[in-house]
Write a protein that binds this DNA or RNA. Structure first.
Lengths: 239, 239
DNA sequence: CCTTTTATAGTCGTGCTGACTATAAAAGGG
DNA sequence: CCCTTTTATAGTCAGCACGACTATAAAAGG
C-alpha cells in the first residue's frame, strides 16, 4: 500500500468468476455459460462479470449468482471467496484480474437463460471439456476447496434441502469426494457432532422407494467439525 | 466473465498487501511500514504496492517482499495468497482492490529501510495499534490462516532455520498458537509423521544454554500432516 | 557433588474410528 | 400371505492416536 507516488498505477479491469455447484440426480453439476463471441467463442465458461464501481467483489458475486441462476433470493446461499487470478495474458484482450468464488446450491433450479445474453446450463462436473480462459483451473481449485472444507466444516448441508435424511447427507459427501462411506460409521459420526444436524421431531421421509423410512434432520447451528470428518484412505494429499 | 459488452468496465487500481511474519526472541513479529503522507499519515501499514502491467499478483508480492525486507533471495520463502479485499471506500482516495498475501521468514533480517521511501520495521504482533486502511483486518486474517495451516501442514518449518531442534519447532507452534504444548507428546507426533522432519545424522546443537544438547533436524519433504496436529482445547472454533 | 535444566524414553487410559454383524421396517413378487 | 429385497438403525470389537504423566539421560552452574 506504499509507493503510491513512486510508480504510476496502471488501471486493471476487475471481474468476478463463479463456480456454482449443485447436485442433480446424485451427480455433481456446475453452472456454465456458453460464450457467443471471441475469444473462445462456442466454448463454455464460468459465469461472472465485471465489478461495478460501487460494489465489493462479494456483492458483485452475489448479484451475478442471482442473475445467472434466476433465483430471487440468494441471500442464504453459501458463497465463498476462493482466490484471485491475475496472470498477465489470462485474457487475450486486456489485463483482467478476476476474483473467483465458489457457491453451493441445495436444489438445482432450471436456469432460464438468466438476464445475460448467454445461456447458462447445469453441466455434470468433469464432462465440460476445456473451458475458456483459465476457467478449468479455477473450477478445479473450487472443487478442491469444497472437498477440503467438507472435512472440517458443516458445509455439506448447504447442498441439502431444508429437511433431509442422513442417507442423503451421506450421498452428498460421497458425490463430492468420489468415495464410498460406511453408513453406520457416517451416521455415528454425524450424530456425535453437536450442532451438525438436529432431528425433526416426528417426521420420517416416505421416499416412495423401498426400505425402512428414514428420519428427517435439519442443518444444525454448528459451522465447524471437531474433530474433523476425514476422507478415507488418503495418504500424502498435497496441501 | 460474461457481460463484457453489456456493462462498461470501470478501471480499478490493483495492489498487493503483505503480512510478513517472523519470530524474534520467541515472539511473533510482523513487518510494518510507517506512512509518511495522508491518508493515515504517521500510522503503520502493511507493506505492499501497485501491481505492474506485466506482473501477476504473486510476482508483485514477491518483488515487494524482496524490496521491503532487503533480502536478495526470497525464492524459497513461503508466500501464500490470502484473499482479496475490495470493499468500496477502503481507500478514501480511489477505488483500490488489494490482493493480500501472507509470508513467513525463518530469521529476521534487520530491515534497512528497503528500497521504498518508507521505513519498514519488525513489530511484535498485537502491539502495533490500529493500522491504516483495513490492514488490521487483513493482518488478523493472515494470522488466523497461518495458525490454521499449522494444524494440517508442515508450514511451521518455514519459521525455522535450515537445521533446528524439536524444541525450537515446538516453540514455533506455541508462539503462533499462543498455547503451551506437552513436550513428549509433541515430539512423538512430529517424529511419527513421515516426512515432517528428518534427523541430521551426527549433529547435536550445543546451545550454550543449560541442559542436554538436542538433536538437530531438517525440514522433510512432506507438505501435509495426516492426521493433523490439532490445537489443544478448542471447542467450537469458528470456521 | 549436588541441583537445575533440558532432552528423550516409556506407560497408561480414554476416545475416535474402521470393519463388521445384527435387527427393524418398509416394498415387491410369488 | 409369506418370503425376499432393500434401506435404516443399533451394536460390537480391535487398533490406534492422543492427553496426561513418570522416568531417565546429559549437560551447566554453583
Amino acid at each position: 500500500m506504499d509507493g503510491y507516488d513512486k510508480y504510476a498505477h496502471e488501471p486493471f479491469a476487475v471481474t468476478v468468476d463463479l463456480a456454482v455447484f449443485t447436485l442433480r440426480e446424485g451427480a455433481l453439476h456446475v453452472l456454465l455459460v456458453e460464450r457467443g463471441q471471441e475469444p473462445y467463442a462456442g466454448r463454455r465458461a464460468l459465469p461472472g462479470g465485471f465489478l461495478r464501481p460501487d460494489e465489493s467483489a462479494e456483492t458483485a458475486a452475489r448479484r451475478e449468482l442471482a442473475e445467472e441462476t434466476g433465483l430471487s433470493d440468494v441471500s442464504g446461499l453459501h458463497l465463498e471467496q476462493l482466490r484471485t487470478y491475475s496472470e498477465p495474458g489470462r485474457d487475450p484482450r486486456m489485463r483482467v484480474v478476476s476474483v473467483a468464488f465458489a457457491a453451493l446450491l441445495p436444489d438445482a433450479p432450471e436456469v432460464h437463460g438468466g438476464s445475460d445474453a448467454a445461456r447458462a446450463d447445469w453441466v455434470p462436473y468433469g464432462t465440460a471439456g476445456p473451458l475458456a480462459f483459465d476457467h478449468d483451473r479455477i473450477l478445479a481449485d473450487a472443487h478442491d476447496r469444497v472437498g477440503a472444507k467438507f472435512e472440517y466444516t458443516c458445509l455439506a448441508t448447504a447442498f441439502c434441502p431444508p429437511e433431509f435424511t442422513l442417507g442423503e447427507l451421506q450421498q452428498v459427501y460421497e458425490t463430492v469426494w468420489g468415495t464410498e462411506l460406511d453408513r453406520p460409521n457416517f451416521r455415528r459420526k454425524v450424530l456425535a457432532t453437536p450442532g451438525f444436524v438436529e432431528a425433526v421431531p416426528g417426521a420420517a421421509r416416505l421416499t416412495g422407494g423401498r426400505g425402512k423410512p428414514a428420519a428427517l434432520y435439519r442443518a444444525g447451528t454448528a459451522t465447524a467439525l471437531h474433530p474433523p470428518l476425514l476422507r478415507p484412505t488418503r495418504e500424502g494429499r498435497p496441501a
